[in-house]
Design a protein around this nucleic acid. Structure first.
Lengths: 136, 136
DNA sequence: GACAAATGATACTAATATGGTATCATTTAT
DNA sequence: ATAAATGATACCATATTAGTATCATTTGTC
């Protein structure tokens, strides 16, 4: 029951590295050396982030990637959703016949509240906060 | 990215039904008819709940299952953890070499806080609350 | 222009988790 | 004794996650 998958994790590592290097164009080779992640995997991850507009890519010789946004306006939730899809913690458990005396799905309501809280929190964690030395 | 899996969901349905029937012994057959869930699957689910002490089982003819605890002392979190293992939202994303300037894994800290909150909330949802007509 | 160095696109494989089925052994009320 | 129930377990199908490989395209440099 994990919240963050491997690809999201690799993405975070890579993006943090890029963010700290400002607008320098950084190749996959450099990232692989620095972060010690599988080359083919991280390439896919970076391409996806590029398509989503979070990174910018430069093709050809001396190509690579750089951040396409301000570090303060990229949020953990955004990155997670690139790889893990929309954040949906529950699909109404009590639909259909079960627990039929329940007029409304009250459990779902409660779970939705929890979900809202998580989303709110994850939206508050910006890349800037992640790489700064200040407290989150 | 769902919080509640199918087996947990079936378990919740079954447990709610048992709870509403108080200490009556209820067979798999009855549960299957009532809840319209796959027989073999729900059997496995019930056996697991029995092993964990949440249900009590009665073997032989006229056997079946009943709740082994007070409805107010069975919590959603317990049931989830039977099927989905310990609730761990993150396995330190920033371990190893990555983001090396971070002295301590501060992201993990933040995620841990979120996790703590979720656990607290899920612990507050008792079976009693689930089957009562009052607000959660 | 030729070539090498880079990403883009995409197809494939392997491992694990999830959802579900089937079977035989054991227990127990009648 | 027998039938009705659960216990234990092995199995299968599908989806998701993790990872690999290959060829096409772009682009800087000589």
């Amino acid at each position: 029951m994990k919240l963050i998958t491997r690809d999201t994790s690799y993405a975070l590592h890579a993006i943090c590295y890029l963010a700290k290097e400002n607008d320098r164009i950084i190749s996959v080779d450099e990232l692989v050396k620095e972060l010690k992640v599988p080359r083919a995997f991280i390439r896919k991850v970076l391409q996806k982030l590029n398509k989503k507009g979070i990174l910018k890519s430069y093709k050809g010789a001396h190509g690579g990637f750089s951040l396409n946004k301000k570090a303060k306006s990229v949020y953990l939730l955004d990155i997670m959703q690139v790889f893990q899809g929309p954040f949906k913690l529950n699909e109404c458990v009590f639909k259909k016949k079960a627990c039929p005396e329940l007029k409304k799905c009250r459990l779902k309501k409660k779970l939705d509240n929890i979900e809202d809280y998580i989303i709110k929190e994850l939206k508050e964690i910006s890349l800037k906060k992640m790489i700064s030395s200040k407290k989150l």
